[in-house]
Design a protein around this nucleic acid. Structure first.
Lengths: 230, 230
DNA sequence: CCTATGAATTAGGTTTACCTAAATTAGTCC
DNA sequence: GGACTAATTTAGGTAAACCTAATTCATAGG
């Protein structure tokens, strides 16, 4: 027994939906219980329980099948995008209006995203001039739940040298954000990548500066880029 | 059994502490379980339970005695004032920076006060120039937990006619806030009070305008004033 | 002094979201 | 086809914060 409930929009539910959205990727693939458990840092059993609850709700938030992973339902996707919108608007607001250091906006937004009202969302959006991307370069979903897709690749996956433009930076690890910002790798910045023979990391020259940074694989994992000329 | 726990700073705990602070009044009198239950809209039994938990914590938040009511401990008072500071700073911020209608700031602040970080608090305080009172006229406790006391009386308690200045307006009832604001009864405004023969309400003339408003007892209960000349 | 009355407390339950431990299922490898 | 393994599910449990119902306590009146 145990897992039949109403499935209100609690903080926890929001976090599950957001995780399913991002893990599912652009093609909205089904997500495994294990992946969710790792992302959310809870036991797999807890995930199964929650998903059963979410699937059994009056208007189900997910499409879940025993041993078959999950996917967001229309309602689930709508809510997930709303939370992402909140998160990114708050990040932008903290950075632009309250002068937060870039590496601190994520943690605060992660908490507040669950508790702000529609009015709050609308007001900060207005104050910011209805921005389309947040300070990390991520697209901010529109009020009616549409998120602009962008073609980009992870810096760590680059196999041949070349010229690129920074698309976005993951905000999940504050330390990495700090390192990345210190290198001048902000969204829109140009960079040249040269795979090092030493295979230790990723040699990167930012803009027209002469300086070359040697990024660790861990850091390079958190940078998304777009090819730009030769 | 049932009520022995750690007593973390949850949203609920914060609300109990805040309620004890305000119900205790300026002289920090002991507060009854019943009064708390009514204020927090929970059953008296729930209050007893929570207070036992708060009193039994490593660093007790309250001084509680069976059948003897409660009082905040030093630690409890510190936390309560911090939450009040959060609340009033947020209200000020919503009103000044995000252009909220006055009657809506309370509800939003009531939720957010529990979730903002020290940094957020510090940043909005700085942005606002470290204000000492919020838009309702309430004193904002300082960072180190000191709240300026002000002598003021409730408009509904006025027995003889006279000239007054608005001290503050309760924010608990949005509808009343709206009415009060519509009359121009904002903190600092002058007013003359004339007890009506009809005993229906409170006749009030604001500033030098000729208009006289007839306030209901319910509304008059939410306005605090200070005597000002004859 | 003893009993009504209302306040406070105890006892026992519920819900949410987590946990661990013990099944079960699916898929691979010989 | 059986065995092993990894993923998933079930079962049973915990803690927080609430609830209702039943009991105890304090005190004011007769």
């Amino acid at each position: 027994m145990g897992a039949r409930g109403a499935a209100a929009n609690t903080e926890s539910v929001d976090n599950y939906l957001k995780a399913i959205l991002t893990l599912g990727g652009r093609d909205e693939a089904r997500v495994t219980i294990k992946a969710l458990a790792e992302r959310l840092r809870v036991a797999p059993a807890s995930v199964t329980n929650m998903l059963q609850k979410l699937a059994a709700a009056k208007s189900p938030m997910v499409d879940y099948e025993r041993h078959g992973g999950v996917q967001l339902s229309a309602a689930g996707k709508r809510r997930a995008l709303e939370v992402v919108r909140h998160h990114r608007l708050i990040e932008t607001f903290l950075y632009e209006v309250l002068d937060y250091p870039l590496e601190e906006v994520h943690e605060e937004a992660e908490r507040l995203e669950h508790f702000i009202s529609e009015r709050f969302e609308e007001r900060i959006a207005a104050k910011l001039g209805h921005p389309k991307i947040d300070p990390h370069g991520h697209a901010i979903p529109t009020m009616d739940g549409v998120m602009a897709a962008r073609e980009s690749i992870v810096l760590a996956d680059v196999v041949e040298d070349g010229s690129f433009v920074i698309d976005s930076v993951s905000d999940r690890d504050a330390r990495n954000v700090r390192v990345i910002e210190a290198c001048g790798l902000t969204p829109g910045a140009r960079l040249r990548v040269k795979k090092l023979a030493a295979a230790k990391g990723y040699a990167v020259r930012v803009g027209r500066s002469a300086k070359v940074f040697d990024l660790s694989r861990d850091v390079a994992q958190d940078v998304r880029i777009v090819r730009k000329g030769g």
